[in-house]
Simulated scan of single mutants.
Amino acid sequence: MTAKIALVTGASSGIGEATALKLQDLGYTVYGAARRTERLEPLADRGVLPLAMDVTDDASMRAGVERIITDSGRIDVLVNNAGYGSYGAIEDVPMDEARRQFEVNVFGAMRLAQLALPHMRAQHGGTIVNISSMGGKIHTPLGGWYHGTKFAIEALSDCLRMEAKPFGVDVVVIEPGGIATEWGGIAADHLRETSGTGPYAKQADAVATSLSSEANAKRNSPPQVIADAIGKAVTARRPRTRYATGFAARPMIAVRRILPDRAFDAVMRRATGIPA
């Protein structure tokens, strides 16, 4: 049997790297995509095929999918993992940065779905895995633009799931909780640069500290837990529509579902150390 083909974006580190290796262990031929291919060398040494791709560049995405189809003739799994957290007060974040956050986290993922779907429909099979976050179900202060992207991924995935079902294509949402990657430190740096001075400075300091604290780093789950969830999803005969996993994901989503808005606001203020 010809090996199934998977494309994983944001594969140079963290969740993407762990996922590429997991799918390879499951027997997939895996293309690991990132903007800088030199960061994919450790994966390439283990047999993952490196692919230069910028999810904000349409020509780059088209070229990447075309290479996969030319080389392999099919695409069975698309894991939309590329993304980052641009934290800062909604008032402070420049609109160019807000747009870039949506370009990377939302439009890049949906464009790759558009490019993969014709091939998956022709095969009458495939799985699109969109990496959301528990942040697609909850809200935190100074994370508005980031949460906006993840809420959008949740809604778009629901619609896409219904549209793709008649063609044998599954759409799965992964909702990570706290994961031990460089994400928190990058988000904290963005936050301090954007809102570290001015009227939101006290909030920014508290939230940045919570994002990058050593306590969080010790509690956070390893990226492998997300890779394992993706592995379950793509090999299941009938995958779940959502997999919430990783530190605090399930309890936080449950608390948000139960509590009224203002009560949840208070919980989040306490959790991030923001004065009432």
Rank of each mutant, 00 (worst) to 15 (best):
S213P: 06
F264H: 14
H139W: 07
G108Y: 00
A271F: 01
L211D: 09
Y28I: 03
A3H: 13
A227V: 02
T70V: 02
Y146I: 04
M120Q: 03
E193F: 05
D58P: 11
I75H: 07
P199R: 10
A59G: 14
G177H: 09
M268I: 09
N216A: 10
F167R: 04
S210V: 05
R100P: 15
E182G: 14
Y146Q: 03
V77G: 14
A164S: 08
T197Y: 00
A229W: 00
G47W: 00
I179D: 11
R192S: 14
L112R: 04
A11G: 08
A236T: 07
E182D: 15
A227T: 03
H139Q: 13
H124V: 03
E175D: 06
M61T: 08
E17D: 14
I138L: 10
R36I: 00
M1S: 14
G178L: 07
I253Y: 07
A3D: 15
A248M: 12
A266R: 10
G85K: 00
M61H: 10
W183I: 07
A18C: 06
F247E: 11
G198E: 05
A233M: 02
N216W: 03
V55S: 13
M268S: 13
D158N: 09
P42M: 02
E97T: 05
P222Q: 11
R35H: 02
R111I: 02
A271D: 04
T127G: 14
R161W: 09
A266Q: 11
D189A: 14
T209R: 12
A263K: 06
W145C: 10
M1E: 12
P223F: 01
L78D: 15
R269M: 08
L112Q: 08
R111T: 06
R270C: 08
A89H: 05
A204H: 03
K22R: 14
I226P: 10
N130T: 06
A249F: 01
A208C: 11
N105C: 02
N216R: 10
A89L: 00
Q24G: 04
T56H: 08
V79Q: 13
V267D: 14
E214D: 10
M162D: 15
G231M: 05
A208N: 14
N105K: 00
L78E: 13
N80S: 06
G125M: 03
I253W: 05
P222E: 13
A3R: 12
G27F: 01
R257D: 13
V106W: 05
A109G: 05
